[in-house]
Write a protein that binds this DNA or RNA. Structure first.
Ligand SMILES: [Zn+2]
Ligand SMILES: [Zn+2]
Ligand SMILES: [Zn+2]
Ligand SMILES: [Zn+2]
Lengths: 149, 149
DNA sequence: CCGATTATGAAATTCATTTTCAATATACCG
DNA sequence: CGGTATATTGAAAATGAATTTCATAATCGG
């Protein structure tokens, strides 16, 4: 973690940026937080370390991390976007519509078939998103908990 | 087309709704328009038939069609949503980030693998979205036309 | 420390979508 | 055919996430 934060710091410096306490808190908070957080969730958590951090800074910092390749923006159709660390390898998502649980999965076979499809259409892919919505084991079995999203 | 419009009319009636000229124009316009239209695009086209139709009615009518199962809401991450007729069988999309072209594809193999994945996690899927973003043949070959989206 | 530049947070803005509301249109009943 | 209850309309207002603006503060390099 320390290593990572220092590396990011260096990259920001190299790109003509400056260090700042607020941003450092946000970045560390982001990597410590559970994945798939909204800006609002992260802002709340980060404010526990530093009451004065504005959500605008959280927005800006996540855009920055995305530009540097450390974060990925997600959209599960909830209105607000979510973000996850981009350090782990590529994966797609199962999203529970009742409790909000997000299950990650990686399926080489599906990825290969996607490549075939694009090739068949002369299409040059740069990114893709695959999300499966429904109900997780717990919610599907009737013992549903939590708010519906 | 006539048959379809009458059927929808009947369903609206049966559900306690009333007929209306504005809505009829929007519905017919939707099925005549090219697929994957935005509300704004459809509003513009529909206003050529009836200058007085407000975009709110287009919003409302598409939500209605979606509820009745005749339309599908899409989100290619452009800010505004798009809609397509839900009469054709399920398919996924290749979206060109330069010219905006949308290529539809259907891959049973991918769908089957998705089922396997969900089963493996005890997840009960109700919907999914698979979009591949990149550049279509024409745009990838350098002879790019059109605005970037 | 200086001067230049970047980062910050609050407030204002944007933009798609939704809600509100008073006026209008439609269906249904007698 | 009215008459009335109810649904629909379009304009305007509200919403809400995300972005921009701007004056102030922090940081860097020298
Ligand atoms: Zn669940
Ligand atoms: Zn993930
Ligand atoms: Zn293209
Ligand atoms: Zn389509």
């Amino acid at each position: 973690m320390k290593r990572l934060l220092e590396r990011i710091d260096r990259e920001i410096l190299a790109a003509g940026g400056k260090r700042s306490r607020s941003r450092a808190v946000v970045i560390e908070g982001f990597f410590r937080a559970r994945d798939h957080v909204t800006i609002e969730e992260l802002t709340r958590s980060v404010r526990e370390s530093d009451k004065g951090i504005g959500s605008v800074t959280v927005y800006r910092t996540l855009k920055l991390l995305e530009r540097l390749g450390y974060a990925k923006e997600l959209d599960f159709g909830e209105g607000a976007r979510r973000y996850e660390s981009n350090l782990s390898p590529h994966h797609d998502h199962l999203v529970c519509r009742r409790c909000g649980t997000v299950i990650e999965f990686e399926d080489r076979e599906i990825e290969n078939l996607q490549d075939l499809v694009t090739r068949r259409h002369g299409f040059h892919p740069t990114a893709h998103r695959l999300e499966i919505y429904g109900f997780c084991r717990k919610c599907a079995s009737g013992k549903s908990q939590g708010r519906i999203r």
